[in-house]
Design a protein around this nucleic acid. Sequence first.
DNA 1: ACCTGAACACCGTTCAAGT
DNA 2: ACCTGAACACCGTTCAAGT
Lengths: 186, 186
Amino acid sequence: MPRNRRPRDREEKRAEIVAAARRLFVERGYEAVSVARIAGAAEVVSNTVYWYFQDKDAVLIAVLDEVLADSLDRFDAVARADLVDRLVWVVDELEQVSRLVSTVHARSKESAAVREWHDRFHLLAEGMFRIELAELGLSDADLDAVIAMGVFVIEGLLMHSPGAADKRAVLSALVRGIRGLAVTAP
Amino acid sequence: MPRNRRPRDREEKRAEIVAAARRLFVERGYEAVSVARIAGAAEVVSNTVYWYFQDKDAVLIAVLDEVLADSLDRFDAVARADLVDRLVWVVDELEQVSRLVSTVHARSKESAAVREWHDRFHLLAEGMFRIELAELGLSDADLDAVIAMGVFVIEGLLMHSPGAADKRAVLSALVRGIRGLAVTAP
DNA sequence: ACCTGAACACCGTTCAAGT
DNA sequence: ACCTGAACACCGTTCAAGT
């Protein structure tokens, strides 16, 4: 007999809680979902959640990690597409979790752990943008400004969810605006 | 004796509650401030708030109206400045209430009344942007896209509060990008 | 190590009762 | 009309107790 009986149980139960929380957070939003409801969906009692997680924000962070990992896994599929198409893809992908976008911003003001996750996510997003734009030959100052603009525009699109045509028009204007800056750089 | 003794009491008490809520929401954030605390600061008991307001979101909307009115009042002061300067001014002005920006987005998902306020605010902001940009001679499709971009960039700056230099760099890149679009319009 | 029953302090909100 | 005391159902979280 193995020394640790069913050694995968811990991870399994934890994963069940995260899966339940993910579905509920995406469907109804973080504030609207109580810890008791998450626990119920994972077939435990509410205080059991605190055996696996420090608090409700820690559950949120586990959900965010899972959602982000899933999206990054799928990113390869469009790696070779046109820049505008890739941006549309990113927004479409993240739009499924648009509730989480405003949740992250709201919780970042209250929870240091969520703020850390948010800051790391921005670094990741900015790094990806930087790679995309490196070849355009922008000045250093403009490059930073344009990366920030790109992130803000994507966040705005996620939070306000316009129709597909408007979304593409905004991203196209963004990219053309950036290309214009590269041409007229001092 | 007047039929209504002290006829201004109602508005006074209401105004006191809004003033207390405004200070607390700006300092500590909507979620972190309980109705009981607002009531305490306005020297009433917590259920008295519900005599003047339908619910906590209604208090938030009254605060938002007050903050917005104050900002619009001050807007004349910069009406003649350069476009980038005006945008910097708007962001600086709204930055004092940056906590409220993410609150509005978070509550818009839960409360129909807050969502209505948010949508009206966007119409106002978009209208002001449209006037600013009318003279640039953008195509209709680009004008809408550029207005959305402008609003998203301002919201992003408010939510992430970068330093003054970064802020100006982003707004400058935005305006130059937009001007570039006008030049190369089809 | 893992899970629970019971409790804690607090939340937004309601309502009958007072003036 | 205006305000309150008391209560309601619920919240995130803690802890001693069980296995």
